[in-house]
Amino acid sequence: MRTRHVPRALAVGISCVLATSGLAAPVVAASPHANGDQVRFLGETTVAAGQLFQGTELGGFSGIDRDRRTGEWVLISDDRSDRQPARFYTARIDVDAAGVHDVRFTGTHPFRRPDGAPYPPASAGDGTTVDPEDIRVDPWTGQYWWSQEGNRPHGAPTPTDAVIQPSIQRADRTGAYAGSLPLPENYRITTEPRGPRRNLSLEAITFAAGGALVTSAVESPLLQDGPLPSPGSGELSRITVQDRTGHVVAQYAYPQEPLFAAPNPPGSFADSGISEILAHPTDPARYLVLERGFSTGHGYDVKLFEMSTRGATDVQHVDSLARTDVVPVRKRLLADFDRFPLPRMDNFEGMAWGPRLPTGERTLLVVSDDNFWPGENNRFVALAVR
């Protein structure tokens, strides 16, 4: 999701609370440098906004992954071809027990349509604009799988505000189109009040079970599944597990947190949702989930959860979560980013596993999307996770 350009303020601290009953108890931070016994803050660095690399503007980093073959990292920019064609970057990033150090970009390529052309901006009016959000390195082939949110028009479709379906595509390492993953029917944008909301669609993807499964998360509830989270109520979004052919193995209800603060002034912009999902390295039922919220007058709020699909209801054939009792996935709080020693809270949207530490912990690299907006940051945060 690209946050609207509205006035920003520093995020305020809020208490760590799981609002959904019946879930595992949260792990509460004991100090500013350690959130519970599973997550430690290692360090952070930023890439200055507005920098140019190979003729492109660096920024909008909404997804990141590490290529185990080369040790390099790949990052996706959520530029909708407004500045330069929709694209990804490769980089060398040093992550160790002392934190995250140099971020050295090594290449960039535009994503290409099946006809070989780069994706155009919406102003082209041909209905093929994409809204890139997440990227993963295929552990089997080394190709890049990437998600994009598509577009739900504000009203009646126009040439520059057309219906564009969300998608998960494959690209080779030069960005050339290599195929796509069929998505479940309830991920489709329709002319009826059903399917994903505008700019709250396919935000996150991850490989699970060693690459045999592709798991995706819808950022916020589908239109038929109920309202958006509010300060008094969390809501249910959907997480889908598919095999590599697109067959839906299962779909689960995910209990989102309530909006962390009412916007100020009342009625101004606020939203929240799943900004990233990451499979556990060995357990196909466990994931890390990053929830990110924004509220005018308060700024950003970011929390890291661990979730398990064991015992949850398969809702792939449930038409509306708003009218049905289902057992959602279980989750517990691992880290409240407000408790980390960060200069300010940012729009964290991407995360990926890094190298293992001598302690046996696994590093986790989290990156923020600056929205190409002055005052926001391309921040890289390194954590240690047991």
Results as ranks from 00 to 15, higher is better:
310 R>Y: 15
106 T>N: 06
214 V>S: 04
108 T>E: 02
152 R>S: 09
160 T>A: 12
132 P>G: 13
260 F>T: 01
320 S>P: 11
368 S>R: 00
226 G>S: 14
159 P>M: 09
96 D>Y: 04
239 I>F: 06
285 A>M: 10
236 L>H: 05
291 E>Y: 07
96 D>L: 01
59 G>E: 12
45 T>E: 05
231 P>D: 14
352 A>L: 12
247 H>S: 01
304 L>N: 15
18 L>E: 15
137 V>Q: 12
123 S>V: 08
135 I>A: 14
170 R>L: 14
37 D>I: 12
48 A>M: 13
101 H>S: 01
225 D>F: 05
135 I>R: 08
166 P>L: 07
78 D>K: 09
111 F>T: 03
114 P>A: 09
218 V>Y: 00
230 S>R: 07
243 D>Y: 06
46 T>Y: 03
262 A>I: 09
25 A>S: 13
3 T>P: 04
117 A>F: 06
20 T>E: 14
225 D>T: 08
331 K>P: 05
214 V>R: 01
297 G>T: 13
342 L>K: 12
135 I>V: 15
144 Y>N: 05
238 R>C: 07
130 V>P: 10
2 R>T: 13
157 P>H: 13
139 P>M: 08
7 P>A: 10
379 R>W: 00
81 S>F: 11
377 N>G: 03
185 E>N: 03
26 P>D: 09
124 A>G: 10
144 Y>G: 05
219 E>V: 02
233 S>D: 08
3 T>F: 01
304 L>S: 13
34 A>C: 05
235 E>T: 08
329 V>D: 04
364 L>D: 00
265 P>R: 11
253 A>R: 00
217 A>L: 07
279 A>G: 10
288 L>D: 08
44 E>F: 02
351 M>K: 10
360 G>S: 05
356 R>D: 14
90 T>W: 02
204 A>F: 01
209 A>D: 12
158 T>R: 15
25 A>C: 04
355 P>R: 12
113 R>V: 03
255 P>C: 05
298 H>D: 14
101 H>M: 06
95 V>H: 00
134 D>G: 06
355 P>I: 07
288 L>I: 04
148 Q>P: 11
303 K>I: 11
252 Y>S: 00
141 T>C: 09
380 F>C: 04
117 A>M: 04
190 T>D: 02
60 G>E: 14
311 G>V: 15
268 S>K: 04
154 H>K: 15
288 L>K: 09
67 D>H: 12
18 L>R: 07
176 A>F: 07
339 R>H: 13
161 D>M: 09
66 R>C: 15
306 E>A: 15
229 P>L: 06
339 R>C: 14
177 Y>P: 07
121 P>F: 04
340 F>E: 07
129 T>L: 12
245 T>S: 08
95 V>P: 00
252 Y>L: 01
7 P>K: 07
168 I>V: 12
357 L>I: 01
101 H>E: 00
304 L>Y: 14
102 D>E: 11
288 L>E: 09
233 S>Y: 05
228 L>A: 11
7 P>I: 03
4 R>G: 12
369 D>Q: 01
336 D>G: 04
347 N>Q: 14
362 R>S: 05
12 V>T: 13
120 P>H: 06
159 P>L: 10
174 T>F: 03
331 K>F: 00
213 L>R: 08
305 F>Y: 15
225 D>E: 08
241 V>D: 04
172 D>E: 09
367 V>N: 06
124 A>W: 02
